[in-house]
């Protein structure tokens, strides 16, 4: 009897005819999704939305979704990127709205364009993070950030699945800024038994940090770790970090939007 090659014989995968790049956000309580959780959710949403996604060939076909450096578990993002291979051409706007409708609230599609030019990975070499530190006086944060900037090298250690890694946060740091916001828009201050008694809800220091992409990537936690190393800064409640942008650094430390080469999206 002929050998059965089920994946290929029974289900020859149609070729990829178009790629669409998508920018999406990971918001609110969904910031606790890991990259694998996000990938799983998007795969299912693609199927529910009946987007004609291309599949890999072979025994166990996988949808052709390419991911770029995911925001860590616990961090929100306004700038995650994904490239979808399609078996028939689609209007990017139609794909964006269909995918957004199929995704759970908190995974929100922000933009989509037909892929063109260099690979997506070549259009991103840095991230801009916004780190919100409730219960911390902005002055205190400002002093710690100044100490970090004054150093040549600040190394923190991170435990990864492959062992302990030394990460030089200072080397990856391109630009920092400290703002303070007594009570901003967005989420209300935390209430409830855990936080209300100890935290002055109105005090909040906010930091913007642009970090260059390194291996391993410098995460918001590493930046906070570095502030602890240089200035003994320990936030009273866990910080909330949001990736605001990714892209190519220009010489003034700004990021070019990877979906529109040359277009600057993050004027600070």
């Amino acid at each position: 009897m002929a050998r059965v090659k089920p994946g290929e014989a029974a289900n020859p995968a149609p070729p990829t005819v178009q790629r669409i790049r998508v920018r999406f956000a990971k918001r609110g309580r969904l910031r606790f999704l890991s990259h694998r959780d996000v990938a799983r959710s998007v795969e299912r949403a693609v199927r529910r939305a009946a987007i004609p996604v291309a599949h890999s060939h072979g025994f166990s076909p996988h949808p052709r979704l390419s991911w770029i450096g995911a925001a860590p578990t616990g961090s929100a993002s306004e700038a995650e990127y994904l490239e979808i291979g399609l078996t028939r051409p689609l209007d990017p706007a139609a794909l964006a709205s269909a995918l957004d409708a199929a995704l759970p609230d908190g995974l929100d599609v922000l933009a989509a364009v037909v892929a063109a030019g260099p690979p997506l990975a070549d259009l991103i070499d840095a991230s801009e993070w916004r780190i919100e530190l409730r219960g911390l006086q902005p002055g205190e944060l400002r002093r710690a950030v100044a100490a970090l900037e004054a150093a040549d090298s600040v190394v923190v250690e991170r435990v990864t699945p492959s062992g302990r890694r030394q990460i030089d946060v200072r080397k990856a740091l391109v630009r920092t800024e400290v703002h303070h916001r007594p009570e901003g828009p967005g989420e209300p201050p935390p209430t409830g038994p855990a936080s209300s008694s100890r935290v002055e809800a109105t005090v909040c220091a906010i930091m913007t940090a642009v970090v260059r992409q390194t291996t391993p990537a410098v995460r918001p936690d590493d930046v906070l770790g570095a502030l602890d190393v240089v200035a003994g800064l320990t936030p009273p409640v866990p910080a909330k970090a949001t990736r605001m942008a990714q892209g190519l650094l220009d010489d003034r430390g700004r990021l070019a939007d990877p979906l529109g080469p040359g277009r600057v999206t993050n004027r600070v």
Binding site: R29, G192, A194, P238
Partner: peptide
């Protein structure tokens, strides 16, 4: 009331 705000502070840990 939801206990989420209190829980949220624990989740990163």
């Amino acid at each position: 009331p939801s206990v989420f705000p209190a829980l949220e502070a624990l989740l990163p840990r």
